[in-house]
Design a protein around this nucleic acid. Structure first.
Length: 553
RNA sequence: UGCCCGAUAGUAUAAGGGUAGUACAACUGAUUUUGGUUCAGUAUGUCGUGGUUCGAAUCCAUGUCGGGCAACCA
């Protein structure tokens, strides 16, 4: 199988199970609750579950864990399916825990018949109080002594809708003194007169996670049921149900969930950001949701590489978001079309350039010779970036300064002759001369300059809106930071450049294309774009060695 | 003071009794018509203490530290 690359602990389990004949083939599942959009943490789980099946020739089901009707919606189901597909995976079957409600009900009846479940009329407070604490054993109440016949009748009546919400629950009869709190007669069914997104009003009792998940796995013959660390204590109950019900023995394995710097990974908090309008929806490009990252321009390939690289283990972790960005850059560098866009323009007049327009060819991607080239209009009046000029420049500044020369990308070398200012002393334009013999591709000037700038021809410039995103939070470990997580929101996470100047080639390209705005970063067209108004999202910046250099000083 | 997980460079992750390796980050330098890319190189690590062993990140004991467990959520 894999000789070079080392295995993670789950792959080792799978290989052992396959090698010793425990299973001929494996089946995994990705089991989201449709109560929110998927985020990068889910991507790790998706890559793990689908990746395992792919690697070992098994299959993976997509199963919606929809046992709590009050939080779940079809919108979420649809978005989850979109996201999994976009990530590049296809499921063997699309299942729903709600598909199994009848079967699950039967399992509960079986437990009652075996004397292993009872109907409890206590309030939730009473149940909590009787449960004890981790160091004090719980105590059973009188309802635990109800007869099988009585329990059967009561449970039937619960299903029939004879009781209001909260008035009764079905509990598994296990061990009120167990050191594992989850085994102290856990609730397995509760009454909820609520509309379910798939079963409608057919049911008014719903199984709890612990009575649905393992059994669903079992029904689907899941061999390796992989979940996150917080479910470790649930494994005893998972196994207990399977054993008492005498059904296919799926096994649960747990790995550490992904945590990432400067982001949150909780659906509850993500929902809060959406509801309270701290962001513009679940697919806001600043969100750690898969749909947000997609809109921002991250590629599925980069996300998969990231998930592969971070590994799977049981130790808690906090991964540098910079690692994700590394994989995004690595991929985009290979596929992005190079374009020139000026965000903050400073006008340049080439005093010795004729009143004509030249079309200059420029490669689409230096990393890919087959990527071809496009023609860029060049004229007497150009825009360059305002911070590519300094009137008084430090020593290692390779850009424009009075008397200094730079190369204009794919065009000529120019020299700054005159600085024009307004009454306040603000630089309004630069008068430069160009070296005709320095034309890109046929340079005979013999001059080598250190700096190369991007530029746009003034009369040909296309205006566009550019949205620059920064991290949504100001602190590294948002989850463990003091106070409310919203206190740490970065107020400057979105900067809008409403009038950037772009080379005209950007009008012609395909909306799915990825761009590198030379010296600026990677960009993608946003869905808010129209024919009249282009809108671009910055996916990620380029690494900036100069910024690092200046920061040091 | 119960039970359960875990601990390897800054961050992650390998090494499964035999040279502590890889990626990102950092730092040097080279190349470069993107201060990007690429290339070459440098520095940094086994939680503590005992033990077993010719040999321990790995096995044993013990301590310490971090995390989890008492929703009619998943």
């Amino acid at each position: 199988m894999s000789e070079e690359k080392s295995l993670n602990f789950i792959e080792e389990i799978v290989e052992a199970d396959l090698a010793n004949g425990k299973y001929a083939t494996i089946t995994t599942r990705f089991p989201p609750e449709p109560n929110g959009y998927l985020h990068i943490g889910h991507a790790k789980s998706i890559c793990l579950n689908f990746g395992l099946a792919k690697k070992y020739g098994g299959k993976t089901n997509l199963r919606f864990d929809d046992t709590n009707p009050v939080t779940e919606e079809t919108e979420y189901v649809d978005s989850i399916k979109d996201d999994v597909r976009w990530l590049g995976f296809s499921w063997a079957n699309e299942f729903y825990a709600s598909d199994y409600f009848e079967q699950l009900y039967g399992f509960a009846v079986k437990l009652i018949e075996k004397g292993l479940a009872y109907v409890d009329d206590s309030t939730s407070d009473e149940i909590a109080a009787q449960k004890g604490t981790p160091t004090i054993p719980g105590v059973r109440n009188v309802f635990a002594d109800r007869t099988v016949a009585e329990n059967l009748q009561l449970f039937t009546d619960m299903r029939a809708g004879k009781y209001p919400d909260g008035s009764k629950v079905l509990r598994a009869k296990i061990d009120m003194a167990s050191p594992n709190m989850l085994l102290r007669d856990p609730i397995i069914y509760r009454i909820k007169h609520a509309h379910h997104h798939r079963t409608g009003d057919k049911w008014c009792i719903y199984p709890m996670y612990d009575f649905a998940h393992g059994q669903s796995d079992s029904i689907e013959n899941i061999t390796h049921s992989i979940c996150t660390l917080e479910f470790i204590p649930h494994r005893d109950l998972y196994d207990w149900c399977i054993e008492k019900l005498e059904i296919f023995p799926s096994h649960q394995y747990e790995f550490a969930r992904l945590n990432m710097t400067y982001t949150i990974m909780s659906k509850r908090k993500l929902l809060q950001l959406v509801n309270e309008k701290h962001v513009n929806g679940w697919d806001d490009p600043r969100m750690s949701t898969i749909s947000g990252m997609r809109r921002r321009g991250y590629t599925a390939e980069a996300i998969r590489e990231f998930c592969d690289r971070i590994g799977v283990a049981k130790r808690e972790n906090l991964i540098d978001v910079g690692l994700l960005e590394f994989f995004v850059r690595e991929h985009l560098n290979k596929i992005a079309l190079r374009r020139m866009v000026v965000f903050d323009p400073l006008k340049i007049v080439l005093t010795n350039y004729p009143d004509t327009v030249e079309m200059l060819p420029s490669e689409n991607n230096p990393e890919n010779p087959e990527g071809g080239s496009r023609e860029i209009p060049f004229s007497k009046e150009l825009y360059i970036e305002r911070d590519d000029f300094m009137e008084v420049a430090p020593k290692k500044y390779f850009r424009l300064a009075p008397g200094q020369m730079v190369r204009l990308k794919s065009a000529y070398i120019i020299k700054c002759e005159d600085v024009i200012k307004d009454a306040e002393g603000k630089v309004t334009e630069l008068h430069c001369t160009y070296l005709p013999e320095s034309k890109s591709g046929s340079d005979t000037s013999g001059i080598h300059v250190k700096g190369t700038l991007h530029w746009v021809s003034v009369p040909h410039a296309v205006t566009a809106e550019v949205r620059l995103y920064d991290r949504l939070f100001k602190v590294e470990d948002v989850g463990n930071a003091e106070g409310d997580f919203k206190d740490h929101i970065n107020p400057d996470s979105l900067q809008v450049i409403s009038h950037a100047y772009a080379e005209p080639a950007l009008l012609l390209d395909n909306p799915d294309d990825r761009y590198q705005f030379i010296r600026k970063g990677y960009f993608i067209l946003d869905k808010d774009s129209t024919k009249e108004k282009l809108v671009f999202n910055r996916t990620v910046t380029l690494k900036d060695g100069w910024a690092k250099e200046t920061k040091k000083a």
